[in-house]
Design a binder for these strands. Sequence first.
DNA 1: CGGCGTTTTGAGAGAGCTCAACATCGGTGG
DNA 2: CCACCGATGTTGAGCTCTCTCAAAACGCCG
Lengths: 199, 199
Amino acid sequence: MSVKDWIPTAVHAVASDRNLKAGETLFRQGGKTVGLYEVLSGRVRLVRVDREGHEVALHVAGPGDTIAEASLFSAQYHCDAIATANTTVRLYPKREMLAALEENPKAMKAFSGALAHLVMDLRTRIEQRNIRSARDRVRHFLGLRVGTDGRIVELQGTLKDLAAELGLTHESVYRALAELERSGEIRRNGGEITVLKLV
Amino acid sequence: MSVKDWIPTAVHAVASDRNLKAGETLFRQGGKTVGLYEVLSGRVRLVRVDREGHEVALHVAGPGDTIAEASLFSAQYHCDAIATANTTVRLYPKREMLAALEENPKAMKAFSGALAHLVMDLRTRIEQRNIRSARDRVRHFLGLRVGTDGRIVELQGTLKDLAAELGLTHESVYRALAELERSGEIRRNGGEITVLKLV
DNA sequence: CGGCGTTTTGAGAGAGCTCAACATCGGTGG
DNA sequence: CCACCGATGTTGAGCTCTCTCAAAACGCCG
């Protein structure tokens, strides 16, 4: 969701930027919420870590995306945010943000719309996670990304990142992509995937 | 989320109730949105159906829960809603709901809060779906339900419902529960589960 | 009592995970 | 310019675990 749609201009004045190196942590689960962030450049992964130490990718945010929107209504962050590349984020402080939204019903409505959109995205992700087959999960991912614009999907980040986002091991993703290419369903060209057949 | 917190009283006047028999469909994915619903009694399952015809449980709503909150910002429902028992729902029409929220910033804020809470719930569900092991997934579910109040989890609905909610086959759930009981981790008593050891 | 859906248990197969080895690529420093 | 090194990309083999198909108790309701 685009930030310009709903962040009141008043809050821009108190926003502050921060640079993160690859691997650096922006915030941790259980940490006190200070506000929501916009990713200006780079990439930030939202993850939870289960008992076994496995990371569960909840979201991957790129430039223009916001993270921790729900933190406005929560005292603590409910997942970890980690930069996977050198990243610049902009912090919109919670206090001012809430005050501005309350004074500006239009902004509040836009914010609600953004949250509603996020809810739909998350449901789509749950649907994805229910697909057992690695091949079908990759197909599902590609189907969401091609849209009607064409048949080319530009991968952001590494294949390991993709595997994490899909909730699969990187080996499974490699094999799935290799099989899809062998069967003539897709063609790979570096970080670019061309979908030939829609199954 | 509780309805009373954020549904403006003005909208109550135009709300209408509807009875559904078990198995009946409330709305379908792609259908035109008419508003959001509150479940007064019974149970409603939100599901998506993938290509293979498998149902993916996105949510199970009981009395007091609302469904299709995000539909206020969307022209079409993005999943199916099916009653799993004889159910009564209350419809809050979209048009009036939106108008009331725009006139009442406090209600809008509460609505945003409800959406934010939903976002957190969905992320927890994604985390759950990432757990491969049936036993661990059941553990995760129990851990969320016990809270600090005690160690007793009251199951709503059948075990098949639970299996659907967990995204597992009912056989796997049976086996997982049997193993947990054999190992002394839980004790079952009808639809009631007592957690003895927290792992 | 009969029928239907839920609860259980069994056996087999498929598929992803794990561990392991190797290739490839990009950056670094001599 | 080249050797080195770490991370990414790729392929192989075995194991474990869930899914699937099957069948049998159990419970509920007409």
